[in-house]
Design a protein around this nucleic acid. Sequence first.
RNA 1: GGAGAGGUGGCCGAGUGGUCGAAGGCGCACGCUUGGAAAGCGUGUAUACCGGAAACGGUAUCGCAGGUUCAAAUCCUGUCCUCUCCGCCA
Length: 430
Amino acid sequence: MLDLAFIRENPDLVRRGAQRKRIAFDVDRVLALDGERRRILLAQENAKAEQNRLGKQVATLQGDAKQEALARLKSLKEEGAGHEAALAPVMRELDALLRQAPNPPADSVPEGLTDADNVEVRRHGTAPAFAFAPKDHVDLMTARGWLDVDRAGRLGGSRSYILKGDAVLLEQAILRMGLDLIASRGFTPMSVPVLVKEAALVGTAYFPGAEEQTYKIENPTFEDQAAWLVGTSEVSVTAYRAGEILDAAELPLRYAGISPCFRREAGTYGKDTRGLYRVHQFNKVEQVIVDVADPERSRAHLEDIVRNAEDVLKALELPYRVVAVCTGDMGRGQVYKYDLEAWMPSRKGYGETHSASMFHDFQARRLDLRYRDKDGKVRVCHTLNNTVVATPRVLIAVLENHQQADGSITIPKALRPYLGGREAFAPPKA
RNA sequence: GGAGAGGUGGCCGAGUGGUCGAAGGCGCACGCUUGGAAAGCGUGUAUACCGGAAACGGUAUCGCAGGUUCAAAUCCUGUCCUCUCCGCCA
């Protein structure tokens, strides 16, 4: 969410930002509503002020003077009710509009419409040149009894999967390696709720917007608001300190959330239907940073969390590239966004494995996540997040890239300590 | 699922109709005191919005929503959350 005062003072910047992101947003309507709001508010508060002043005197008054005061109070009360009635629809529309306001992208964000317009920033490693016909991860896994999609479908519907045997150990090894790496860089591991109240989704700016992509709970144990399953622990971790005024001395906060993630993937019928690329439930380690409202520091954090993710991909010995997500593909809240894409032989291309977002105060304002700076002034924080590692998608890259001519799969060195020192998975039994 | 207790400022905790944005304490900041420190003393210490160049003024906020009243932290209704006990279950 943008600050209303910011929109008031920078209407052109906001308008231009919305255009660049290809998001419809009526700045003029917001300005008109804001003016209306302030006009009514002033009248309402003046009436209320007189009411309060008079009300205090009433107790000391007698006879006619008292009756007169009471009559005046009555009319003031009616006047106040009138103002309130006039204000309500203005506020309702203004709040709704404000929640839709897109955060202007940084000047350096590449222009574009879709992910096809994203710009490659750098590339690491090269796609393996197989001297044999490489198998895709589904074949590699099925041959070993590691994957059962058919029975999973019966249990959990489409886009379900069951990992078995070494695939489970490999998955856990990858998650744990990622968690250890991020923890060693000062991020506090956090195991957080995946079942959350709607406020957390609204606060992190997923709602309104992503309701269709999110699983809603039919019978939550609380009734004050809807309950949902998060699509990423970013939601829980970023909202963790919501409503607090943080001490600048404890910033930046660095958290590493670990959780299952749930996504409905509505509207993706027929897309990525084979294998583990697009599933409804997966596991992820996520990095989140909360810091002071300083664009340069935020930018430095963004580069840091991208580097952390790159180091995970390097540890997995995967070729990858970093892309700067273009204006049309980046979403309402982000000021800048990088995707990291690992090489996936079966896709004959790079597939997204990480997504790093810099929000400035967009999420924090909704979350009411603030801090007191050196001068004692309360300010809204900046937030960022990025994947550390997510499975099973990354399994695709790991298994496919590391398959050998003899049918074995080499285990990246960084994972071996987590797999009892094994160096490779043997070829499947004939 | 059943029974009970409770939700007040950064924290503890007082407050049952106006003088309460809220006593007192702790914490924190600044100052005095001191060779230095502690103790002691003094002063200050919420957030949002509106108006104002500013000084400052106004409005709102005692879990949340609504009601009674000229006036609500205080009375009424609903609701959410937390805790304790019983039951059930992992």
